[in-house]
Design a protein around this nucleic acid. Structure first.
Lengths: 270, 270
DNA sequence: GCAAAAGTGTTGGGAGTACACCCATGA
DNA sequence: TCATGGGTGTACTCCCAACACTTTTGC
């Protein structure tokens, strides 16, 4: 259709922007939802916590840039996480140095290596969401807004997809999966009903039947073995054509206030 | 905390990007969901259809830029539409001229003036979504992808919010509102049940009771008056602190295949 | 009266919730 | 045998799809 090489923009005809890709990487430790943050070494906001991220390179797609930053910061291999775009943030004054448009991503990972002091001398750490939401930890730029938006996006996604499986090892018990929902939603779920949800949703498949001890040989599996009580069977997210998680056939509604052990439902029975 | 003026980036230290804000503006005409497109006058993709949009200005927020482009293109006043960000698109080769990151927005408007040949000689038109989804109309760049993503986002949003009201005049009949859902979801809804949904959802409020003919005096109201049959009462989206639409108290589930007049539900009763 | 659209009543089934109960295991 | 967690059964409630039916208008 076009026979000649396309015309190029006059570089003076448009205002140049810096574009960065920043990532909120979430994981669960000790039943709490945590996000990976970096302590800033330079101005502005020196000493404050910020999201990992950096400039998008000239020949890099946005998601590639986010994945690269994630790999650099955590040392994890590509594919160890689930990464999705959240939104673009581009208020004119959000970075006092210059005009920066940040494309924000959120990611979920089962196990993040304890952040090291690191090559670039920047301190990194996993920070519980509760400490950010309570205001105990202040973030640089508009990163608090970005983290809040990311958390809300994850909470919502877990209602419709099997995203929760990305917080777990490739194989997990139903108990583990339930702990993920409870940590992210901040509300306890009924173990019996949750059992049925996993079995009937169609988004997960059983890997090993209950009375098999052969699965518990690796060091990784120790935490999914209960100290006491009946051993659980192992499950995995059902594969789709492009990898898991699959969309849940049946969705799990987020409890409005607290579904159990607290106040009963307004129109409770019995 | 910071006493001195912040350091500035060395302009050679980051790759400069062009950032644009493009908008998919949707409306409903003759029961069909349509999107506003511009015919490109220059290379590349000369003569192809593209989304309205343009460069973000140095002191402009992303959403401001999108609103400005929308106002310039349609001639409508700010506030005549509902505008939300969709996502950022930034594949390295999406524009052959240079590296462009596009922040895509979608907008919904009750009535778009018939696009004129226009000041910049660019032809604009409202194109039915069906003609894009069927491949009858080809779009420039990755704009087909953007439009598809926007449509899916709108379909989904209408399940949880009162967004549908933005497709209607400030006051509308329940029939009108139902036509919106039917057009966007492509499936008929039961009029009786939909009636209840609007009345009980809490997202809408009644403005005029049924047997009042005084409301039908303006020329605008002719289309909400049925030619035959009992006249309907007028409704409006309930105001929130920052304007409507409010989040629907009760959500309206999107029909899986077709809820009525076609195949009955697999587990249908009676 | 008749057709058409607004609006209400009714009903059966499905889904979710609360909770009782049985099963399997380690100490 | 006891405590603990895995997993199943069950009853009750609420929501909703389907559709019958009444009301109000124009012709």
């Amino acid at each position: 259709m076009v026979s000649k090489s396309p015309p190029r923009y006059d570089a003076t005809a448009f205002p140049p922007f810096a574009v960065t890709a920043d990532v909120s990487l979430f994981t669960i430790r000790d039943g709490a939802l945590e996000v990976l943050l970096i302590e800033r070494g330079g101005e502005p906001y020196r000493g404050a916590w910020a999201l990992p991220g950096g400039f998008v390179r000239p020949n890099e797609d946005l998601e590639e840039a986010a994945a690269r930053e994630l790999a650099e910061e955590t040392g994890l291999a590509r594919g160890a996480w689930h990464l999705e775009q959240l939104a673009a943030y581009g208020a004119p004054d959000r970075d006092p140095r210059m005009r920066v448009v940040t494309v924000a991503f959120w990611a979920v990972c089962a196990e993040v290596p304890t952040p090291r002091g690191g090559g670039d001398a920047a301190k990194a750490d996993l920070v519980p969401i509760a400490r950010i939401e309570s205001g105990a930890v202040r973030l640089a730029f508009d990163h608090e807004r970005i983290v809040r938006d990311s958390v809300e996006c994850i909470r919502s996604s877990m209602e419709h997809t099997a995203l929760a499986a990305w917080f777990c090892s490739p194989e997990f018990t139903i108990r583990e999966l339930r702990r993920v929902y409870e940590a992210v939603w901040g509300a306890p779920l009924d173990p019996g009903n949750f059992q049925r949800y996993v079995r009937e949703s169609g988004a997960f498949e059983q890997r090993a039947a209950p009375p098999s001890r052969v699965n518990f040989v690796g060091p990784v599996d120790l935490n999914m073995r209960p100290e006491r009580g009946r051993p659980a069977s192992l499950w995995a997210a059902r594969q789709t054509e492009d990898g898991f998680p699959a969309t849940a056939i049946r969705t799990l509604a987020r409890p409005r206030r607290s579904s159990r052990a607290g106040t009963p439902t307004p129109a409770g029975n019995r």
